[in-house]
């Protein structure tokens, strides 16, 4: 398990039972937190450029923001001064270059995108629709 996933595991334990994450199993929170933290790390590598998050991951981020100690735990993973900027809802075709870069960074850093989590990343769904294999 990488340092990133260790951190995600600690954070997800802290978020378990959050009032902002009702109706989610511990396992779902764990997976979603891991994907969010991985996504933030990749975005930091990409100069803060954050690809669209699924509503599930976005909600985990909101829950994380309301827990300062957990936030600090994630921030220790990231380069100081990183300023996340969400790409606007441009047509996915306009983002293709970033999408492929993102998938490649994910694969290099964390291995293939695990089965069952691609739906947390709208970018992956788009690439799959184009017939681009995520591996």
């Amino acid at each position: 398990m990488t340092e990133v996933d260790d951190c995600a595991r600690e954070v997800s334990d802290g978020l378990a039972g959050s009032r902002l994450l009702p109706c989610r199993t511990v396992e779902e929170v764990r997976t979603q937190t891991r994907e969010l933290v991985r996504g933030l790390v990749i975005a930091a590598d990409m100069g803060g450029l954050l690809l669209p998050l699924s509503p599930e991951l976005d909600r985990v981020w909101l829950a994380l923001l309301t827990e300062p100690p957990l936030c600090q735990r994630v921030q220790r993973l990231l380069p100081s001064g990183v300023d996340f900027v969400h790409v606007r809802n441009a047509p996915p075709a306009d983002l293709s270059e970033h999408l492929l870069d993102w998938v490649e960074r994910y694969r290099c850093r964390f291995g293939p995108i695990p089965p069952g989590v691609a739906h947390y990343w709208p970018a992956c769904r788009y690439l799959e629709r184009l017939g681009v294999g995520l591996s």
Binding site: L53, D58, L64
Partner: peptide, 8 residues
């Protein structure tokens, strides 16, 4: 504007 991103 009502997302986790906005909160961030």
């Amino acid at each position: 504007d009502h997302s986790g991103y906005a909160a961030y």
